[in-house]
């Protein structure tokens, strides 16, 4: 089955992640799949490269699972993020949350993807026709005046 919160370097099988959250008391499973998009603001992506600080990234994914559990105690969460080179339409991340009722599944799944973008040490390098850059880094427009991402960091 693999771990509930996992960084992998091979293609993600969505059903494998779903299987981790199937539960007789779940009536709803929300799955968010992040894929590699070809066009962004008129620029064509050739491929992406993801890198992670693997042990910490898995810990932080687990922390997101804890956050979800504290808001929706009956939720079961599994997240797998892929690293390495990804081509157009490849799956970068799969989030699965099962809950008894659908509202919580949608909200928890959304929470997970937002938090992945805030607190999980994974980086994406875009390769364009005219070069490449580390997203969220090269431009250096995003800074953390408090020295760390906000929202639950010191809980």
């Amino acid at each position: 089955m693999g771990k509930l919160f996992e960084i992998v370097d091979s293609p993600i099988i969505v059903q494998d992640v779903i299987n981790k959250v199937i539960d007789p008391n779940a009536g709803a499973i929300n799955t968010f799949i992040g894929t590699v998009r070809e066009m962004t603001k008129g620029k064509k992506t050739l491929y992406l490269e993801y890198e992670a600080y693997i042990p910490m990234a898995e810990t932080q994914l687990g922390r997101i699972g804890d956050e979800i559990r504290s808001k929706w105690p009956e939720a079961k969460t599994a997240i797998t993020h892929r690293i390495g080179r990804l081509d157009i339409s490849d799956i970068a991340v799969v989030i699965c949350v099962s809950t008894p009722h659908r509202d919580a599944a949608f909200k928890a799944s959304r929470h997970a993807i937002e938090r992945i973008k805030e607190i999980v040490p994974i980086w994406k390098k875009e390769h364009w026709e005219n070069g490449d850059f580390w997203v969220g880094n090269q431009l250096e427009t995003k800074s953390y005046p408090e020295g760390h991402p906000t929202g639950g960091e010191s809980q």
């Binding site: 040490p121 994974i122 991402p149």
Partner: peptide, 10 residues
């Protein structure tokens, strides 16, 4: 210690 530039996973 690890230096963590702004993350961009997902």
């Amino acid at each position: 210690v690890a230096l963590i530039p702004p993350v961009s996973g997902g």
